[in-house]
Write a protein that binds this DNA or RNA. Sequence first.
DNA 1: AGAACCTAGTTGAAAGATAAACTATTCCGC
DNA 2: GCGGAATAGTTTATCTTTCAACTAGGTTCT
Lengths: 153, 153
Amino acid sequence: MSEPRWLDATQQQHWRAYVDGSIRLTEMMDRDLKSRHGLSVSEYEILVRLSEAPDRRLRMAELAEHASQSRSRLSHTCSRLEAKGLVKRDNCPNDKRGVFAHLTDEGFATLERAARDHVETVRTYFIDVIDPADLAAIGRAFAAVVDRIGDAR
Amino acid sequence: MSEPRWLDATQQQHWRAYVDGSIRLTEMMDRDLKSRHGLSVSEYEILVRLSEAPDRRLRMAELAEHASQSRSRLSHTCSRLEAKGLVKRDNCPNDKRGVFAHLTDEGFATLERAARDHVETVRTYFIDVIDPADLAAIGRAFAAVVDRIGDAR
DNA sequence: AGAACCTAGTTGAAAGATAAACTATTCCGC
DNA sequence: GCGGAATAGTTTATCTTTCAACTAGGTTCT
């Protein structure tokens, strides 16, 4: 095995800032959403994706893809959201294996309330502390990361 | 309550690219470390921080801070790492409440092996797909995020 | 000294995530 | 149209994380 190409000091510094910052940021979002609206970030993400879909519904597999979750995890999370009355599942007529998840009115209302607070948090701890040019760089960079990971499957 | 300051289309796009990318990136790191070395990212992080500390040991609270983990979580994770023989805990002589966690030789050896692979993964899916200027932007941005969150406690 | 308070760390129960196995349906090649 | 492979989604068991409660040692103030 060849000698690994270690990161140089600068790369290391940036990488670590990112790792550290993203952990803390997610933690912040999570605590905020949970305490104010009883939602975890991943539950919130599911509601968002559904709300944007045509007829506010998506097939489970698509939803999993949009929300970057495994199907198993989505199944579990959806069960919880269904128990809370925010989401409803029903069978797909075309494909009898398939299941549609759709947002209930209550789910939509909850999402609207949560989104108002969430956007404030996103601004306070992310958008507002970052130079717009740097934000654009982040957008570019992580789009490239998603591409690269997408390739690898 | 006032009207929330929603993100504009561009901000939204960058924010989402980041959320999506960071989830997938972490997942990738995690699967990689776990399958090749039996370590989760957070376990790895703990070993790294210990390896860099003087005498390869740190007080639990400091370690928790460095690894951005709660103390409870660190306790549990340390117990697992201890069971694997990678870490050892013993009492602090000065402060009888205190506990030092230190890296065992086996822990260090495991970390060395894991780090070689990990750095490759970090390069492949992050460093190498990002323009150096954008990487610097990420470093700046997330340092600011950490600062901002630090302020808020 | 001692009462009230703070800090360090662990623990146990409950919630959430992961991984593998499983059911049911559809697709594909012959 | 039949057998095998692939896909959709759920389930079960297991592991991890979180949260709140708890032990125990230090600090401070009078």
